[in-house]
Amino acid sequence: MEDKKSKIKIAVTLISLAAAAVTIAFTAAHYRRRRKTRSSCYLHAEGKPQFSFRRVLADNSFSHFKHLKRSSASSNEENGSNLHPYEQEIKALLEKPPVDFKLDSTGWNSKVSSSYVWVETESQLKELADLLSNERAFGVDTEQHSLRSFLGFTALIQISTRTEDYLLDTIALHDAMAVLRPVFADPNICKVFHGADNDVLWLQRDFHIYIVNLFDTAKACEVLSKPQKSLAYLLETYCGIYTNKLLQREDWRQRPLSAEMLEYAQTDAHYLLYIARCLIEELRQHDIDNSTSLDEKPHYVVEATRRSNMICMQVYTKEIDLYPGEAAASSILSRHFDVHEGSSTSSEKQDLVRRLCTWRELMVS
C-alpha cells in the first residue's frame, strides 16, 4: 500500500514538473515572439544607426564644432567660431520682445488621439516644412539617445500644430533635416518648447538648426513663480493629463516605437500650444493687475519672452580634453587611486591608466 502511494506521489510530481516545463516554454516562446514584433531595424542592425549618417556635424574627433555661417542669402557655410549665425535676429527680439501672441485654438483637439503623422521620407519632410511656414506658432519636443554614443544624437522630434501632430524619424532623416532650418529660424513664427535649454543645443549639434523666436513654458513658470515648472506639472494642472516620465529613458532608436512610447512622445508636444496660451493669459493678467496706468508697458509677458529668447543665444560647443581620454582617465583615477600618493608604483599605474584611456579614445574616434 505504501509502495503504491509512493508511486502516485512520484507520478503527480512528474506531471507537475512537466506542466511547469510546458508553461515556461510557452511563456518564453510568447516573450520571444513579442520581442520580435517590437524589434528595431536600428537596434538589430550590424552597425550603430549613426554610422549611416553621411554628414556628422559633431563627431568624436578632438576638433572644435563648426557652426553654420550665413555668408549670403543663398549659401550656407560652416563657421569655425562660436558666433551665433542668427545673433542679429535674436538680439532684435530681445530689444523688442514679441508680446502679441496669437495662439489660436480653433480646430485644436483637447485630447491626444491615435492619429498622428509619422514623417520618415524627405518628401514628407519638405511637405511639413511648407506647412509650418504658414503657421504662426507650433510646439516642439525632442527625444535623445546617448547610450553607447559619445555625444548622443536626436532620435525623434515631435512637432504639433493646432490641427495635427507630427513625429519625425530623425534617424532616417538625419541628412535631410536642413529642410527645417528656415522655419525654425523664422522670427515671425513662434516655436513653443518646454525647458528648451538642451533642445536648442542638440538641434544645433545634429542639424545646424537654430531657433529664432522661442516661447519656453518653463521660463513662463519662472516669471509666474509657479510652485513647479516641470512639463508633467503643467500637463496635470492645465490638461488633467498624467504622463510616465520614465519613458524618457527608453531607447528611442527602436523602430517601430511601442504604443506607449508613441503616446508619450505625441503628448509632450500636443499640449504645448494650449499650455502656452494659458500661461500667456496669466502673464497678461499679472500685467493688468500690477499696472498703475493703462499706458504702462507689459512686464510679465516681456520678461517671459526675453528669458525664452535668451536661450536661443546659446551656441553648442564640444567638450575637448587637453589630450584624448583625459576626462575618462581623471574619473578612473579619482575613484580608484590616491592621486597624491608619491610612490613610483602609483605613478606607473596612473600613467598606464592615462595611456589606456588615450588608446581607447583614438581607436573609437
Rank of each mutant, 00 (worst) to 15 (best):
M1C: 10
E2F: 13
E2I: 13
E2Y: 13
I15P: 03
L17C: 14
A19M: 12
Y31L: 13
K36R: 13
R38I: 05
A45F: 09
K48E: 11
Q50F: 15
F53Q: 04
S61L: 03
F65Y: 14
H67Q: 07
A73E: 13
S75G: 01
N76M: 11
N76C: 09
N79G: 05
G80S: 11
S81L: 05
S81H: 01
N82Q: 09
N82R: 08
L83W: 00
L83H: 07
L83T: 05
E87C: 08
E89A: 15
I90M: 12
I90A: 11
K91M: 13
K91D: 11
E95D: 13
P97W: 05
P98F: 03
D100G: 01
F101N: 01
D104K: 06
S105F: 00
S110L: 06
K111E: 14
K111D: 12
S113W: 01
S114V: 03
S115M: 07
Y116L: 14
V117E: 14
V117C: 13
W118T: 03
E120G: 01
E120P: 00
E122I: 04
E122N: 12
L128E: 08
L128I: 04
A129N: 07
D130M: 09
N134Y: 03
E135R: 10
E135V: 00
R136A: 05
A137W: 02
A137S: 12
V140W: 02
T142H: 04
T142G: 04
E143M: 08
H145S: 10
L147F: 09
A155G: 11
Q158V: 00
S160M: 02
T163Q: 14
L168K: 03
L168H: 03
I171Q: 06
A172D: 08
H174P: 01
A176S: 15
A178T: 05
R181D: 02
F184Q: 06
N188H: 11
I189T: 12
I189R: 06
V192R: 01
D199V: 05
W202K: 11
D206A: 07
I209K: 05
Y210R: 06
F215E: 02
A218I: 00
A218H: 06
E222L: 13
P227Y: 04
L231A: 08
A232G: 10
A232V: 02
Y233C: 04
E236A: 15
Y238G: 08
G240S: 09
Y242N: 12
N244M: 03
L247Q: 10
Q254W: 01
R255D: 11
A259G: 00
L262R: 10
A265R: 06
Q266Y: 00
H270R: 03
L273V: 02
Y274I: 02
L283Q: 09
E296D: 12
E296L: 04
K297D: 09
H299V: 15
Y300N: 10
Y300T: 06
V301R: 06
E303P: 03
R306N: 05
R306P: 01
S308G: 09
M313A: 09
Q314F: 08
Y316V: 02
Y316L: 03
Y316I: 00
E319G: 02
I320N: 02
I320R: 08
P324R: 04
S330P: 00
I332V: 15
L333G: 03
H336F: 15
F337C: 14
V339S: 15
G342Y: 02
S344P: 00
S346C: 14
K349G: 00
D351E: 13
D351C: 13
R354C: 11
R355W: 05
T358N: 14
R360I: 09
